[in-house]
Computed example of a mutant assay.
Amino acid sequence: MSTPKVPWFRGASCHITARGNHRNDIFKDEEDFQYYITLIEEALKYFEYDEYKIICYCLMDNHVHILIKTKDKAPGQFIGRVNAVYAKYFNKKYNYIGHLFQDRYHPEFIKSDEQMLEASRYIHLNPLRANMVEKPQDYQWSSYSMYIGDKKEKLITTKEVLSYFQEGKERELYKKFVESAISIKTAL
């Protein structure tokens, strides 16, 4: 029996999560993380005419978060290509047999501006919540440092999220927005 299709609509933005099977690690070293990012870049070029846009991302040891904006095609073909090629690479490199990913992928469709902001903040704070870093900009496999201007933008499109903040102060205000959730957490 085939897996049912994920519902989708044109122009949708979607927070995609793909988790390792049995919550096992899907990245074991820096080369693995870098290869996955390379696959995202290659998929953006491959599907250039479908106009996918990566809003933000975070690659964790055992799962990935990608906030993607679509135009005319569902995100499944994009993430499916990335994960399938990555699984073949991982299986060969580590002599792994079986499914690398738990499921195809889990989509959460963005229905409001507030949800878009919260999804980006959630994605960028993931390494901090997992106690992997003390500051979100210290995590190498996330787009956060590009959002706040510490690194040059590559792979992502920050325009949509940063447009919610005052022009000229977008990056500074986004950083305050994201990091305000840290102070709330530590105050509890």
Rank of each mutant, 00 (worst) to 15 (best):
C14H: 05
Y46S: 03
I16D: 04
Y96L: 01
K135T: 15
E170Y: 08
T157R: 01
F33S: 00
K151D: 03
L100W: 05
V6K: 11
M1I: 13
P4H: 12
H15R: 07
E170M: 12
G11N: 05
E172H: 11
R121Y: 08
F9H: 14
H63R: 10
V178G: 01
Y52R: 01
H22C: 15
V64Y: 00
A74S: 13
K45I: 14
S13R: 08
P127L: 08
Y174P: 10
I26W: 02
K53L: 06
K69M: 07
S145P: 01
L100T: 02
D32Y: 00
H124N: 13
D61Y: 10
D25L: 13
D61S: 14
N83K: 12
S180C: 13
Y52I: 07
I184D: 14
D32S: 05
Y49E: 14
Y144N: 09
T158Y: 00
F9G: 00
K88R: 10
R121P: 07
S2F: 13
E179V: 10
G80T: 09
S13W: 09
W8K: 07
R10H: 08
T70V: 09
N131G: 12
F9Y: 15
K151W: 05
A12N: 06
N62W: 14
D72I: 09
D138M: 03
D138L: 07
Q77E: 08
F27R: 00
F33C: 07
D61G: 05
K88D: 04
F9C: 07
I184H: 13
Y174E: 09
D138A: 09
P107Y: 05
I54W: 05
H99L: 11
R171Q: 14
D113Y: 06
E172P: 10
Y139A: 11
P136V: 05
Q102S: 12
I66A: 04
I97W: 11
P136M: 10
I156M: 03
K93R: 09
Q115H: 11
V85Q: 00
S13M: 11
I37R: 10
R81F: 08
A181H: 14
W8Y: 10
Y36K: 02
D113E: 12
L125H: 01
W8C: 11
Y52T: 07
E114C: 07
Y139Q: 03
F90D: 09
I37M: 12
L39Y: 05
H22M: 14
L162S: 06
E51A: 12
I123G: 08
F9V: 11
N126R: 01
Y174N: 02
A130C: 14
E42I: 11
S2D: 13
G20I: 10
D138T: 00
C58K: 05
K5F: 13
Y89W: 02
L100Y: 04
Y49M: 09
I40E: 02
E118F: 05
K53Y: 06
Q115D: 03
E51M: 07
E172Y: 12
E30G: 13
A119C: 13
A74W: 04
I156A: 03
A43H: 05
Y147C: 06
E118V: 08
P136Q: 09
R121E: 02
E179M: 14
Q115R: 01
R19K: 14
L173I: 14
K28V: 09
W141K: 03
H22R: 15
M1A: 15
S2M: 14
Q166F: 15
